[in-house]
């Protein structure tokens, strides 16, 4: 690509159409985030790997080794298989929240950096969506980092049965939904209330997210089985169970539409919250 750098004069009229300017600015904002990620890779990698590693290590390596295997002696291998999907889904969700929501809370809060970002020549809704898209890319990266851990660390064999069409469609969908979730949380919390985000929202989501058990297994506790349907992580875990293993899982006819619906909901509410924070 050859470009002629023009010494631009004071622009009394816009150089580009709004659509073209917005497209270019969107790409440049992603580039900026990529550069920041490259600078902070030393923090990104341990932050992404440690929690999934400990989860897999304790549940599927330590427990079987010390004779406290989850799922009984015969079920240990099955449990490792169930947990693979959960660990990948959890890594995606954590990354979405950490990449989008936490910096955004600061940028809205004391640094006010967001004020400059919204002056870039693109619609404010697109500044918000850019953050969700960036969150989904970071989530994808963390899924790629975490998957080998979940497959290799367990002391008992993990039975993978990969359905590529499901994996290749479900992964981007889950990653985007978590980016949008991060956007939604980022606009609803401030530096004072952000500890609550983890204390009362992320922890219940993860404990009741069908990470450690298939959703169907909750059958004996019917009320809980219904209650957790409000948790987006349930559909992610069930979807990854379908994509990666032959374990029983929720019907994909339910998983896909619900994940799409959550994506739309979080994007819509995220844009709404974002706009309210930057325009008066």
């Amino acid at each position: 690509m050859t470009t002629v750098p023009v010494e631009p004069g004071a622009e009394l009229v816009p150089r580009r159409s709004p659509a073209a300017a917005a497209r270019v600015a969107f790409g440049a904002l992603l580039l900026r985030d990529l550069v920041v990620l490259r600078k902070t890779l030393k923090e990104f990698i341990p932050r992404t790997l440690l929690q999934p590693f400990l989860l897999v290590f304790v549940f599927t390596y330590v427990f079987p080794k010390i004779g406290q295997g989850v799922g009984g002696a015969s079920g240990e291998s099955e449990f490792s298989t169930i947990l693979v999907a959960g660990v990948v889904a959890l890594a995606i969700m954590f990354q979405g929240i950490q990449t989008v929501a936490l910096p955004m809370v600061n940028e809205f809060g004391f640094t006010r950096e967001i004020e400059d970002r919204v002056l870039a020549p693109l619609p404010i809704a697109m500044v918000a969506i850019q953050k969700a898209v960036w969150g989904s890319l970071a989530s994808l990266l963390s899924a790629l980092l975490v998957f080998p851990i979940a497959a290799v660390v367990p002391a008992t064999p993990v039975h993978l049965d990969v359905s590529w069409p499901v994996l290749l469609t479900l992964t981007p969908l889950c990653c985007y939904m978590c980016g949008a979730l991060g956007l939604f949380f980022g606009t609803r919390f401030d530096p004072r209330t952000v500890p609550l985000l983890f204390g009362i929202i992320v922890i219940p989501i993860t404990f009741l997210g069908a990470i450690y058990y298939p959703w169907q297994a909750l059958e004996p506790i019917r009320w809980l089985q219904i209650l957790v349907l409000a948790n987006p992580l349930v559909y992610m875990c069930e979807g990854f169970r379908a994509a990666l293993t032959d374990s029983p899982h929720m019907s994909l006819w339910v998983v896909y539409p619900v994940l799409v619906a959550f994506s739309v909901l979080f994007t819509w509410q995220g844009i709404k919250g974002f706009t309210r924070r930057v325009v008066s």
């Binding site: 816009p14 150089r15 900026r32 920041v36 006010r112 950096e113 967001i114 400059d116 002056l119 404010i124």
Partner: peptide, 26 residues
Amino acid sequence: HPVAAKQVIGVVPQTNTLDRSLSVYE
């Protein structure tokens, strides 16, 4: 036409809104 307008304005706000994750040059 906010997007067209934003192309032709520059803003120095009251508070420091520099990007803390980037260097001066960046």
